[in-house]
Simulated scan of single mutants.
Amino acid sequence: MRYLSLLFASVLPLVASCKTAEALPSSPPASGPGVAVVELFSSEGCSSCPPADEVLSDLVRKGDGRVFPLAFHVDYWDDLGWADPFASAQATARQREYAASFGTSSVFTPQMIVDGTEAFVGSDASHARDAITRALARAPSTRLTVTAERADAQSLRVHYRFDPAPKDGVLRLALVERGLVTRVPRGENAGRTLAHENVVRSFVTVPIHAAEGTAVLPVPSSVDRRRAEVIGYVQSAPRTEGRGVPITAAARTPAP
């Protein structure tokens, strides 16, 4: 596992031990009325991250419609020999926001967060399975539906509807792409071929003012729309200080 301490806004990576990923169970998690949004913070520059990437990829392969996996590639390892082609400062900023919501000043990779409130080492498949089961057992406070249409070559127009409209919070919209493969020539993963699923290629936050609306989601030119989809999810205001930001609904739609 790799750690990043946020001290005086500087980046100070520290090294710690990592876990070996185990396969998720072949059967889907226990049934329930809820959804499970699984956010992984990872990097191709981190040697501890490939096992966590495999845990997330296993969720995608299982295809449980109630589970929404997203891989955010952070950029704070990009100066250590290999710049991750999918990394972004936006992903790093999102992880830092989560750190603040958990009452800590540091972030690490690989980190997995389920439903915005349960954070742990991303390669811990058993913890992922249990956290997903707990998330699915919680009834969502609203129902979300999303549809998308092509606005132009660089963007999608995403239509969303809530039933009922959330009383607080925001809508997160992510464009994710499957089947990404990189041959890494340098850095901690030098010589390895890394495979990724549901990498976040674009991400916007939309304030919620009504029961329905429309938002624009950018589409990078390198994205293959045939392997992409839009995932939307609602995050409410934190209910308990230091316990993250709860996710109360989620939905997906293909990227046209």
Rank of each mutant, 00 (worst) to 15 (best):
L7Y: 11
L12Q: 15
L12F: 14
P13Y: 14
P13F: 14
L14N: 08
L14S: 11
V15D: 11
S17L: 07
K19I: 05
K19C: 06
A21R: 06
E22M: 11
E22Y: 10
S26F: 07
A30N: 13
G32I: 09
P33S: 15
V37H: 05
S42V: 09
C46M: 10
C46L: 10
C49L: 08
V60C: 08
R61S: 09
K62R: 12
D64E: 12
V67G: 00
P69M: 02
F72D: 06
H73D: 06
D75F: 10
Y76A: 14
W82S: 11
D84W: 12
P85C: 00
T92D: 02
A93T: 14
A93D: 14
Q95F: 04
R96K: 13
A100G: 08
A100R: 13
A100N: 07
S101M: 04
F102I: 03
T104P: 04
S105I: 05
M112A: 04
V114N: 01
D115A: 12
E118D: 06
G122L: 01
H127V: 11
I132F: 01
T133F: 08
R134A: 14
R134Y: 00
L136D: 05
P140I: 06
T142G: 08
T145L: 11
E149M: 12
A151F: 13
V158Y: 08
R161P: 08
D163E: 15
A165F: 07
P166W: 05
K167I: 13
D168L: 05
L171M: 07
E177Q: 14
E177R: 00
R178D: 06
L180P: 13
T182K: 04
P185A: 12
R186M: 12
N189A: 11
G191D: 10
G191Q: 09
V200E: 02
F203A: 09
V206K: 07
P207N: 04
H209N: 12
E212I: 00
E212C: 02
G213D: 02
V216Q: 14
L217H: 08
D224V: 09
R227Y: 04
A228P: 07
E229Y: 06
V230W: 04
G232Q: 05
S236A: 12
A237R: 13
G242F: 12
G244R: 02
P246H: 04
A250T: 03
